[in-house]
Design a protein around this nucleic acid. Structure first.
Lengths: 238, 238
DNA sequence: GGATTAGGCCTGTCTAGACAGGTACGCTTG
DNA sequence: CAAGCGTACCTGTCTAGACAGGCCTAATCC
């Protein structure tokens, strides 16, 4: 007879145990994770069960395993599925971290020539503008500098972007027709650098995104990520 | 006594077997994949071995498993990655500029542990290595640091890469099954910086690309672009 | 005929034991 | 002191057997 309700699989319990040790600060990056045999003794599981837990954590990039040596907490490196238009809040929460947003600016603006061009409106046209910082566990992970065309998507400014991300709102407000991305490496200017709390020598990944709805440009956004803490990944079927 | 050289793990052989059935057309999208017990009988492995193979294929999105029903070939991915696998020579020529490549290194190497891991071979295995600089109108636009698994794609080193790009050769030599990209912003080290003729303060876009053929990793490449002169673009249908 | 049930196949998980090969460290030997 | 060797520990893999629970179908019962 097994224990009363084996609600969650034991290998998941082992994964959870390790993840807790890491997020709780008991295990820092580079630290040695209990070996399979130690987990066998401590958690009373079979080695294959501990092995599966550690193997999956390695596949997830949480730990690094070296045959003959041991298992170690991986250096944190955030990666997201790329231009699969994804919601940064979900992304952060799926990693088990706390998500938070800070609103730097939110209001209507008059389009400059450059911004107007990017958004497909003439200079001087009214656009909704938001400037947010997205935090993962208190650490800034993205600066989102976004312009929305109010004649394509209405009501953008009426949102509380500490509760719903611009992406979430836009996805439900306007059916996404097409998106265009530009990815660049830049040395950020002082404003972005301060918001991301970066050194002068840090590189930044700039994702410039435009999305279309109803045949017109709905929104143009500049997403800045710290180069040292972020990467894009993706797969392609050929 | 095991078989003479147990070169590759048996669960990998099972994965390879399934992938061959799929890429060979024997198993189409939606088709039922042999059950674990069938694989046990057909390939003479333990069920746990067949289980691991199918479980990993499911994690890779190649198959879909339904408890109590069976395992099925996954439907083709709906959306493709915007970072299309492009040929840099075509890209440059399409802008009306002159393309030129300089070969810094070309030859066989023994895989370090890190490189072996990226290429899915054990440390010490032989890999073909090339290090090229691609020029647009005399200005360096990309440093391509590439490793090719000669057991997947043969004859890599016999090319004249001033006349054909590695990408061109690989596309015709091996049918691309899948590609994976990682995009990062980095401050390049001195070697890369010199090859790209960059200032110390310039950022670099690093595209790390791996491609699969026949279910195995065919090649892993690091593509460095000067942040000030390069950007990635792509579109996504949503 | 329609509802219920039993059996068979499937995935999902867990276990205990085994062998291989890599790595590090300390001891021994020259 | 340096080189080499043995040993202990680690990951990586494989196996055979077990039980649980989902799902489908076919036989059975009302």
């Amino acid at each position: 007879m097994p224990q009363s309700p084996p609600t969650t699989a034991r290998y998941l319990q082992v994964k959870h145990y390790i993840l807790q040790q890491i997020s709780g600060g008991n295990l820092r990056a580079g630290a040695r994770v209990p070996s399979e045999n130690e987990l066998v003794r401590e958690l009373e599981v079979a080695r294959m069960t501990a092995n599966r837990a550690l193997r999956e954590l390695a596949a997830d990039g949480v730990v690094v395993r070296v045959a003959g040596v041991g298992t170690f907490v991986a250096e944190q490196r955030v990666h997201s599925h790329p231009l699969e238009v994804r919601n940064i809040a979900d992304e952060i929460r799926s990693r088990g971290h706390e998500y938070e947003a800070k609103i730097v600016f939110l209001g209507p603006v008059s389009a400059s020539r450059e911004i107007g061009e990017r958004c497909g409106v003439s200079a001087g046209a009214r656009l909704d503008h938001s400037l947010l910082i997205h935090f993962e566990g208190g650490v800034p992970l993205q600066v989102e500098d976004r312009y929305v065309n109010p004649t394509v998507v209405a009501g953008y400014l009426r949102n509380d972007f500490t509760r719903i991300t611009p992406h979430e709102f836009l996805m439900q407000a306007a059916p996404l027709q097409r998106a265009e991305h530009t990815v660049r490496a830049v040395i950020p200017d002082g404003r972005i650098r301060r918001m991301l709390k970066l050194d002068a020598s840090d590189a930044c990944l700039l994702i410039r995104r435009r999305t279309w709805a109803g045949g017109r440009i709905a929104t143009a956004a500049d997403l800045y990520h710290p180069g040292s803490r972020y990467e894009l990944t993706g797969a392609l079927q050929g």
